[in-house]
Amino acid sequence: MNAAAREWTRFTPGERIARAMLYIVTAIAVVWSIRTIDIIPEFLYDAPEQTADLFRRMWPFDWAFYPKAVHSALIETFHIATLGTILAIVLALPLSFLAARNFTSNPILNLIAQFIFVSSRSVNSLIWALLFVAIFGPGALSGVLSIAFRSIGFVGKLFGEALEEAQQGPIEALTAAGAPRSMLLVKGYWPQVEPAFWSVALLRWDINIRESAVLGLVGAGGIGVALDAALNNLYWDQVGLILAVIFCVVVVTEIVTSTIRSRII
């Protein structure tokens, strides 16, 4: 008995069986997926050539196209992303206070807020855009609304979690001083979650810039409309220009948001 007690194995037999099963399932999944995706060998073999050809058609860019159509579409993309983010924040903030279990102790209200977040996040912004284009017609308004509705869940969930992580000590101190609930929020919670708020808002704005760049593919305004048109017309030099512009914009927003973040926190 004593000798047995000194033996040490990392996993119990049950755990070993579970791990073996996991390996087997993984192997089956890999084989199954390779057989399902129907790779056509001919397309695979000339992929490098096709890629090179595509790039050759893109270069040189059609620079004249920039002032003609890309610039105004780019500005519209910015506006869609920014307005959508602001709208999302306005709608998500009150909901996140309802979702935070330490601030709202009513489980039904928590559940309602979480349900709204999940429904918002479970639908991709492209799908939201299809929906809003059907309702409001094509254009930037549909873009703004689809960005906003997709972002509510993201902002609300992350900010709500930040609220739940707020330290209770200062809240307790303000409660003990006889502060009403509204003041607990303003002077107790807000100073603690302010950095989290700005970081969530900026991150979402950054994501939204990228998302609103493709919304135009379904007619919801922005630079995606120009991209869609160029793709349909097979004007690869215009497509190349637009992709390059989107890339530059994403890099710039990344730099801007990370600079602002480091300043605030």
């Binding site: 000590g169 200062p170 307790e172 101190a173 303000l174 409660t175 003990a176 001083a177 006889g178 502060a179 009403p180 002077k187 107790g188 100073p191 603690q192 302010e194 950095p195």
Partner: peptide, 20 residues
């Protein structure tokens, strides 16, 4: 709340709002 504001409290971990 009216009664609480007549009773001050000092805490072990100070419980200040750190970012203010």
């Amino acid at each position: 709340r009216a009664a609480r504001r007549r009773i001050g409290m000092v805490f072990q971990e100070y419980n200040l709002v750190e970012r203010l």
